[in-house]
């Protein structure tokens, strides 16, 4: 029966890093993820778009099991996601996550935010961890803020620190849940620029975003979600020029010409 169902652009991927297989999830009566099949190849950048409430955040959060699922399987680099405990923690360390609201540790300095995981989870010694943290902070352009507390930084700076914090774990894949939606317009580009650079460096990325410019320029694939289903997947140029589904056409007409 698998022969019939492979009708999407999802050609079998040689080097699959993240595989979601028939994933379902409910919030009470709401069927928020419906039979989700999604395979993300190593080095691929997938942008997830869709109307608000369609389940994009939930999809993103199931990939590192911040949300549990009701059925289906999720595996990362060939290993199924453990249910809980130490195993799950270890696997999460390989999956970086960047949140809409940054979620930097409020009681720790910028430098401590980026060293904590290395020291506590990876058991790196403090000195090595700090050296790495400083070079990552330089890379995202906030090296000068290392000793400040998150609340003393602008939103754009905080989000770049959050990216550095995730990168410090040497993740295999990075998840971004609307990383620029909480930012003032003038700060959006500094964050997108860091993300573009990451994509160019070959990081595997799943990005939920409304930034269509980023989707066009950095994504290998666009996944369009509506009402808990993946409605359409395509290369960005194809998707934006020729959306096939009515839902996607309708969505694009709303966000592209205001």
């Amino acid at each position: 029966m698998s022969e019939v169902s492979v009708t999407k652009d999802a050609t079998p991927v040689a080097d699959a890093l993240v595989v979601l297989n028939n994933v379902n999830k409910h919030f009470g009566a709401l069927h928020v993820l419906q039979d989700i099949d999604l395979t993300i190849a190593r080095g691929e950048v997938v942008v997830v778009i869709g109307p608000s409430g369609s389940g994009k955040s939930t999809l993103c959060r199931t990939i590192n099991r911040l949300e549990t699922t009701d059925s289906g399987t999720i595996s990362i680099d060939g290993k199924p996601l453990p249910q809980e405990g130490r195993e799950l923690a270890r696997l999460r360390a390989d999956v970086g996550m960047v949140f809409q609201s940054f979620n930097l540790f409020a009681h720790k300095t910028v430098l401590e935010n980026v060293t904590l995981g290395q020291v506590k989870v990876r058991k790196t010694d403090r000195k090595t961890a700090e050296t790495k943290a400083r070079s990552l902070l330089d890379r995202v352009g906030v090296g000068a803020q290392a000793d400040k507390y998150p609340a003393q930084l602008s939103g754009g700076q905080q989000q770049r620190v959050a990216i550095a914090r995730a990168l410090a774990m040497d993740p295999k894949v990075m998840l971004f849940d609307e990383p620029t939606s909480a930012l003032d317009p003038e700060m959006i580009n500094e964050v997108l620029e860091v993300m573009r650079q990451l994509a160019a460096d070959g990081m595997t990325m799943v990005v939920v975003t409304h930034e269509m410019g980023f989707a066009r320029s950095a994504a290998n694939r666009v996944v369009f979600m509506a009402d808990g289903k993946i409605v359409e997947e395509a290369r960005p140029d194809q998707f934006f020029a020729n959306p096939r589904s009515d839902r996607a056409k309708d969505f694009l007409s709303k966000i592209l010409h205001h």
């Binding site: 130490r86 923690a89 979620n103 540790f105 904590l116 995981g117 989870v121 995730a166 774990m169």
Partner: peptide, 24 residues
Amino acid sequence: GQAEAARSIGMTFNQTLGQIVLPQ
């Protein structure tokens, strides 16, 4: 979100509680 961020970098429940949640 503080605890979620801690869990997302692979901290265990005890680490999340001791390092992030209780101090705050």
